[in-house]
Design a protein around this nucleic acid. Structure first.
Lengths: 111, 111
DNA sequence: CTGAAGGTTCGATGACGGTCGTACTATGAA
DNA sequence: TTCATAGTACGACCGTCATCGAACCTTCAG
């Protein structure tokens, strides 16, 4: 009944129609962010921020998640203290047909 | 008969197998370079360096052509004083399937 | 030979972005 | 209430890159 002491944590997501190709390509042009995308693809669903294998610090990783979210690549929401991430696969496909699959395929092939 | 006073101008091109996804994405992530790629797609063949419509200076444009060439996106060769550019479409498709078409399609759709 | 057109090279500059550590907030468990 | 966990915000640092102008090189036409 009681309102929480503070507002629940929410996350802003852009409409894919508002996202530019420039944003999408810049987002995907960073190796750490591609790691995130690939691991998310492999997971096949949601994945907590802390469960990614990357070579950077937590605060840097937060930055990368923000970039990916603002580029429309991922969706984020809280569950308790955990922040869950998932790919906006269908929306990305509608906005930039073939782009995400091409990048993920090439990235996987390289690794 | 006489040998030219100086060696003819040649241009070095990487094998696509030596090009990384990182290079390709960085090359395509710049708006001026995407203009070049799109205008080259529209031309459907070769196009002289001076015939591109971009907002930057000649020397900057030279830089962008170098980046695109080293990323395996374009091929360049001289004819007289003119340098001709063409897309390495098939090779790019073999190395990064779907990537170039996806970017060009999205770029054209945005414009 | 001379001039002009087409590109390149070089150095400087300025902006942007990835990185980190530290301090902080929010949530849930004890 | 207290503590631990998960992640964020902020500021600083630093390297990289897009950009330019000026000087230069190469080729072809007179």
């Amino acid at each position: 009944m009681a309102r929480p002491r503070t507002t629940p944590r929410t996350v802003e997501h852009p409409e894919l129609s508002e996202v530019t190709l420039q944003q999408a390509l810049e987002a995907l042009a960073d190796p750490v962010r591609r790691m995130v995308v690939c691991q998310l693809t492999q997971a096949g669903g949601e994945k907590g921020c802390g469960t990614f294998d990357t070579p950077v610090s937590d605060s840097t990783l937060t930055h990368h998640f923000n970039v990916l979210r603002e580029a429309g690549v991922i969706r984020q929401h809280y569950r308790g203290t955990t922040k869950l991430n998932s790919l906006r696969t269908e929306e990305m496909e509608a906005r930039f047909p073939g782009l995400l699959p091409a990048v993920v395929t090439a990235a996987d092939a390289e690794a």
